[in-house]
């Protein structure tokens, strides 16, 4: 009963997001649309808090715990959010949006980190087994595989879960650091900075990130599949995961750093759609339809909005993103368009 109510709440939430976005794109209904989306969000959030049940959780009855933590987190967030939104000057609103967007990205990043550690299991468990009983790593792997079998997870599904976690973290982190840099730029605290060949470094960094993700997922698949040849697959995967975390934070900074202050709204809109995609990965992770629809909607609408904003400024997105890398590149791009 409670669970079907939750599904109803998620359905209402998804519909209000669609209707809200639609109304937000017409001047007469925009304000109402915002309120409708906010109401739908409240329904989805409180529905989750009170009605959520995890049917696959074998340790407890599946209800959520730690209500004190949840409510104090909500209270702190509400107070700070309301104060920040009320106090901000009208002219400083875009940078506020950027900062809130970064918060969303950071939220997605933190979720992924917790879920990653949850997926691999606590560190102390494996170490104590190795130390006290002196089991070989093979036996250790076997144990883990058994654990996965008990939980009903096939290697492919487990690896798929890691893909979702890592991509969600990557995009969330890029959005987080990028938005903070964008906020600083609009604030005037951070100056534009670019160096020669930065777009080559950015592209290779992005390539490296993807390779690391693929490598980590492959290592994890082998570990679950009991065919790992590595001495300590867990350590390798952890190392890969955290290097992806650090490198994507760096990528977010390098990505926004060279873009001129006047183009910031376009970049914020782009990062906005990134966070939407990160939220959608969270929806995949929890099989949660409202996170999925909300995230993907923002992801696609945000991308289109970014392109529209570029058009309104008489520029192309490519121009905004790579046009400002170094004087020469900007000149040649300007000539081409």
């Amino acid at each position: 009963m409670a669970y079907s109510l939750l599904h109803l709440a998620y359905l209402i939430g998804s519909i209000t997001f669609i209707v809200g976005l639609k109304m937000l794109s017409h001047p007469a209904s925009a304000r109402k649309g915002n309120l409708i989306a906010a109401a739908g969000m409240a329904i989805a959030i409180f529905g989750t808090i009170f009605l959520y049940e995890d049917t696959s959780d074998i340790h407890a009855d599946g209800h959520l715990r730690n209500y004190a933590w949840i409510f104090s987190g909500l209270a702190i967030g509400c107070v700070v959010g309301v104060l920040a939104a009320k106090k901000v000057k009208m002219t400083a609103m875009p940078e506020m949006v950027s900062l809130f967007n970064g918060m969303g990205g950071a939220c997605a990043m933190l979720i992924s980190i917790v879920e990653f550690n949850h997926l691999l299991g606590p560190v102390s468990f494996t170490i104590s087994l190795n130390d006290t009983i002196g089991w070989s790593n093979n036996a250790n792997n076997l144990l883990q595989s058994l654990q996965h079998l008990i939980n009903g997870v096939s290697p492919a599904n487990a690896a798929g879960k890691l893909v979702i976690i890592m991509l969600g973290m990557l995009i969330g982190t890029v959005s987080f650091t990028g938005s903070v840099i964008a906020w600083g730029k609009l604030n005037g605290r951070i100056k534009d900075a670019s160096f020669k060949g930065q777009h080559i470094i950015n592209l290779s960094l992005l390539g490296l990130l993807l390779v690391l993700v693929i490598y980590a997922v492959a290592a994890y698949y082998k570990m679950v599949d009991m065919s790992s040849s590595s001495t300590n697959p867990q350590l390798v995967i952890r190392l890969l995961f955290y290097s992806v975390l650090v490198l994507s934070a760096l990528y977010g900074i390098l990505f926004v750093m060279p873009i001129g202050g006047a183009d910031m709204p376009v970049v914020i809109s782009l990062l906005n759609s990134f966070t939407g995609v990160a939220a959608a990965f969270g929806g995949f992770l929890y099989d949660n339809p409202v996170m999925l629809t909300g995230g993907i909607l923002v992801g696609s609408a945000g991308t289109i909005l970014t392109i529209l904003m570029c058009k309104a400024m008489n520029r192309s997105l490519k121009n905004v993103l790579i046009g400002s890398f170094g004087g020469g590149a900007a000149a040649s791009n300007g000539g081409a368009s």
């Binding site: 906005n272 939220a279 909300g294 909005l305």
Partner: peptide, 11 residues
């Protein structure tokens, strides 16, 4: 609209 979408991905 950007700001509204920003709030929605807060889901």
């Amino acid at each position: 609209l950007m700001s509204g979408a920003n709030a929605i991905h807060g889901v």
